[in-house]
Design a protein around this nucleic acid. Sequence first.
DNA 1: AACAGTCTCAACCGCCTCGAG
DNA 2: TCTCGAGGCGGTTGAGACTGT
Length: 359
Amino acid sequence: MSRKPCCVGEGLKKGAWTAEEDKKLISYIYDHGEGGWRDIPQKAGLKRCGKSCRLRWANYLKPDIKRGEFSDEEEQIIIMLHASRGNKWSVIARHLPKRTDNEIKNYWNTHLKKRLTDQGIDPVTHKPLASNPSPATLKPSDDSQDDSSKSRNSEEKLRSGSTSPTSLPPSSSSSNLPERSSSDETQKNDGSLRSKKRCFKRSSSTSKVLNKVATRASSIGDVLAASMEGTFISSTTLSPSLNDDFSETCQFQMDEFDPFSESSEHTTGHMKEDLSINFYLNNSEYDFSQFLEEFSTNEGEETENIGGFNQDLVMSGVSSTSVDEDNPIPNITGWSSYLVDHSDFVYDTNQDYDEDFRF
DNA sequence: AACAGTCTCAACCGCCTCGAG
DNA sequence: TCTCGAGGCGGTTGAGACTGT
């Protein structure tokens, strides 16, 4: 009892869409709305299968799709969500307004994955690559003192060579490229755009900060996710992608710690106790406990920068879909936003930030 | 100028999910 | 409860553009 394939049919066209086909599809959907994809090709006069029409519309023609370069913030969100959820592109896309899962997937595969690899981070696990084993993977019975030293080693490794922020394949975002605008612009017209896309630009200071945050947030995300799943072993130390101080300080008592407890007071209070961690950014001190305090204060209120439990995750001033209760990422995002908001750090393109990022 | 290698991303493929009947 | 089909999803492909020699 095999299901009849959707796109089997005589004379169905495949491959790149033409401007004329786009026009027909857009016109039809404007008149009749989305849905009923199976019937759309016939009604719209297209020799395409319904699925192909739906994909073309959803990934390219839909008017509210944001095209063009990914912002630094979007990149960080993708990295953090991927660390937490894996290749759940549709889930990630829900947190990036106007971005399609396909676009995010492509961007991950062509840019972010490579960048993480260059940083010595496994893009799948978001942990240091196998050649640089993570103490977090050690059994709890392992000597915790070794953890910190290994943590230090891996951190040093990350700080050297290709892991230097200045030597990273920089973010392709922030360029002043014109967005691909009209739907009738065919692939063939993308030549100049693609050419420009390869002219990478240095990441902004925000990006640099967030790159650091993202690495840590991934680890935090692991911890939180593991906590929620009940798999986090008490007194397990954090990944060495966290810095020494952080790893040494964060000796969670996970059997007591429930970051998503209904009792925010308990949660944030507990975290404030346990996470008295300071990050240093170019001589500026960032206090995680202060962040938590702000987070606690803002919880339940509408806020643009601190994502709270059950609140909308706000990205670039655009409110996205409501955050799932089981999704730790808004908090991580809030932490990122906090850093950005409190950072007076100015990125100097002539400076070597290996020295200045004292994570 | 020509060629080969590399990169990008739109589009396709096949499986999965979920809701209607 | 079961079946079916539309739509959703993630992985993969391949054409076209770019880069290096």
